[in-house]
């Protein structure tokens, strides 16, 4: 797999580290155990499009978001960390 770092261009997979699912909102401190447990541990884990964070650890060190298909590994979008999730597919 090759990923397109928005700052450095296309690089090999082993320059990057995956940071897991993006756009998970942290609940308020008074959240119930159930809400907090779901926030920490429970994931959609889709077989299909996955919105996820990556870091170009062995390059520029920058974080960015990726929309990737978990079965084909096709990357459909790359977008900045603070941008809202794009509509793809």
């Amino acid at each position: 797999m090759r990923l397109n770092c928005p700052y450095c261009g296309a690089r090999d997979e082993n320059e990057f580290v995956c940071g897991g699912t993006s756009h998970i909102a942290r609940p308020a401190l008074e959240a119930s155990d159930l809400t907090w447990g779901e926030y920490l541990f429970f994931r959609d884990n889709p077989k299909g499009l996955h919105y996820e964070r990556w870091r170009h650890t062995y390059g520029c060190g920058q974080w960015f978001n990726v929309v990737r298909h978990t079965l084909t590994h096709e990357v459909l979008a790359v977008y900045p960390m603070t941008a809202p999730p794009p509509q793809v597919g």
Binding site: F41, R43, N45, K47
Partner: peptide, 18 residues
């Protein structure tokens, strides 16, 4: 590895990543 897929069909989520 497909536990989450079946859980989604049944209507719940799991603390699992494949």
């Amino acid at each position: 590895g497909h536990s989450s897929v079946l859980a989604a069909l049944a209507g719940f989520r799991l603390p699992v990543t494949s």
